[in-house]
Design a protein around this nucleic acid. Structure first.
Lengths: 116, 116
DNA sequence: TGTGGTACTCACCAATTGGTAAGCATTGAA
DNA sequence: TTCAATGCTTACCAATTGGTGAGTACCACA
């Protein structure tokens, strides 16, 4: 996770919660509804099992996602957004729109500068 | 910086741009107007010179900040937001508000769980 | 008796990131 | 002649993060 220093501002705090390598993507996936662990893994191309679970645990600790275990065999675990998680996702949506808009340019610029 | 893989969604792209350790804070500081290097350093408690400049370079490469050098002695360099940077900052503001709202709880929860 | 499916957990190693401290160039002022 | 101020850059090391692959527990089912 991160350091326990006092936050400098709201951005600082929000970034600390959502800044993990896969957290934005996890949140976005859960936006569409609850998901089993395996479903999430399949929806996030490239995530390792270790990472996925670690990030989910951190989000859970921050009160963003809710983890529900069904005592079945084989085991079933479902993740969903808490109320706070829904709020966070809403707050993320302008950022998402910005990303959509600028994604092609950014990608192209990085390709270009890495060739130089 | 990060990998040159294609982005999965807008959040993915935006996080790639703004996810650096100090970038959110730099953006927030520049929101209030142009800043000299030394001013930024003093406004971000704990940042090292190396990190500050590295993050500024990356933001510049992504077209978020503009760097202007005045040929004086001692040298003067000023950073300001580009149009794209202003847009990004606007998109960040709901996130900032969310952070403000939840910052005390999050901080407290992390303190608690780290004691456990 | 053995295999499959699910959600983890762990140990180990490699890659990335961050911190520290020093150095450089320039020129006006002491 | 030496120093301070400013914005960088570099080398080196430590800490953090991420990937891989194996192992665990459980029970249904063949």
């Amino acid at each position: 996770m991160a350091k326990h220093r006092p936050y400098i501002c709201g951005i600082d705090a929000a970034m600390d919660v959502v800044g993990g390598k896969w957290k934005g993507l996890i949140l976005w996936a859960l936006h569409e509804g609850r998901r089993r662990t395996g479903e999430l893994r399949r929806e996030l191309p490239g995530v390792s099992e270790k990472m996925l679970i670690q990030q989910l645990r951190e989000l859970e600790a921050d009160g963003i996602v809710h983890r529900e275990v069904y005592r079945e065999v084989p085991p079933r675990v479902e993740y969903s957004l808490t109320e706070r998680g829904v709020e966070l996702n809403d707050a993320l949506s302008p950022l998402s729109a910005w990303g959509q808009r600028h994604m092609p340019t950014i990608h192209a610029q990085r390709e270009a500068t890495s060739r130089a």
